[in-house]
């Protein structure tokens, strides 16, 4: 088990570095010049200012040297300075990550808490109204574009019904809680500030529902499909033939087996939620990593792009590892093999 984990960790590190190399090369061949994109019209026409900026960001060095510097810094735990914010990339990540983790996690919890029971019920009462509505909802969730859904949700619940708060993590006039973890929910609880907790929570509802829509649909469908397949297995028929209660058959016999593909999907879905928040964050003015990555890519902010690539690669690799390990918990056969 230990060897398995350590092998996987080493492979993960190599893969993450490889991902940065690929992104570095792609970013280097696009014709856009980050310095010209950033400088004002007049400054961009002054060769000495352009040269000064190029030197400041190390863009005047040969490609291999630029990547080498990136690696050297990386081993010292330094991701460099972002060109477009002028701050260390690590500081930027530390600032924007909590908002995204908070949003992505709530969305993940919602999609599991709703999707799994919904899928089970739909499978057990196949072709009932529950099944049909589950299928309809998951179809809508999977097929609606996020930006559309986000805007419709804002218009209905914020604009018309006026029961949801507006874009952002708090109302404009609110003060954020003292920074401990960066998560407004946790920090406001630590500070004992119940009002801020409520506001922060209310602000999370719409964006996390919008963000989880597609994932919720997927989880519902995969749970339903997997459950149906399991319910058709011989051992389930045997259990029923033995006269076991239907409830016990479903919960004790079928469910654990049906959950294996759901766990795989859920792991990937969580990684996806954490890294795929760009559109939701844009419409909801959510100061998270998704928007940070998007803006960095637009301005060809190489240090930030590299930092985010590395981070996203690590998120995927770690979550994949956790998914593999969790098989062992659900299915003891994995360890015995």
């Amino acid at each position: 088990m230990f060897r398995y984990v350590s092998n996987r960790l080493i492979t993960s590190v190599v893969l993450a570095l490889f991902a940065t190399l690929v992104v570095f090369l792609i970013a280097s061949v696009v014709p856009g010049d980050p310095i010209l994109a950033m400088l004002g019209d007049l400054a961009a026409s002054k060769p000495e200012i352009v040269a000064e900026y190029r030197a400041r960001w190390g863009l005047d060095l040969p490609l291999w040297q630029q990547y080498w510097i990136f690696l050297q810094r990386l081993f010292h735990g330094d991701l460099g300075i972002s060109i477009s914010t002028g701050r260390p990339v690590l500081a930027d990540i530390a600032q924007y990550a909590p908002a995204t983790v908070e949003l992505g996690t709530i969305a993940f919890v919602l999609s599991i808490a709703i999707g799994v029971p919904f899928g089970i019920v739909a499978a057990v009462w196949r072709d009932s109204w529950v099944d049909h509505s589950a299928r309809f909802i998951s179809l809508v969730g999977v097929s609606s574009p996020v930006f559309w859904l986000a805007f419709i949700a804002l218009t209905i619940f914020y604009g018309w019904l006026q029961i949801a708060p507006g874009p952002g993590r708090l109302d404009p006039i609110d003060f954020p809680p003292a920074n401990v973890t960066g998560s407004f929910l946790i920090d406001s609880l630590i500070a004992g500030d119940w009002e801020t907790f409520k506001t922060a929570f209310a602000h999370l509802i719409l964006p996390s529902l919008v963000l989880c829509a597609a994932t919720l649909g997927l989880i519902t469908r995969i749970t339903r499909a997997s459950m149906l397949e399991t319910l058709g297995q011989d051992y389930v028929r045997v259990a029923r033939a033995k006269g076991m209660k239907e409830r016990a058959v479903i919960v004790r016999h079928a469910l654990p087996n049906a959950l294996i593909p759901v766990i795989t999907l859920a792991g990937l879905a969580y990684a996806n939620l954490l890294t795929g928040t760009v559109l939701t964050e844009t419409i909801f003015s959510w100061p998270g990593l998704g928007r940070y990555t998007f803006r960095s890519a637009l301005s060809l902010d190489l240090p930030a792009i590299m930092g985010m690539t590395l981070l996203f690669a690590i998120v995927y690799l770690i979550i994949n590892l956790l998914v593999d390990l969790s098989y062992a918990l659900v299915d003891p056969r994995v360890l015995k093999r």
Partner: peptide
């Protein structure tokens, strides 16, 4: 996108 536009124009 903005970065490419400015680059081709300024150059």
């Amino acid at each position: 996108d903005y970065a490419n536009l400015r680059t081709v124009y300024y150059q």
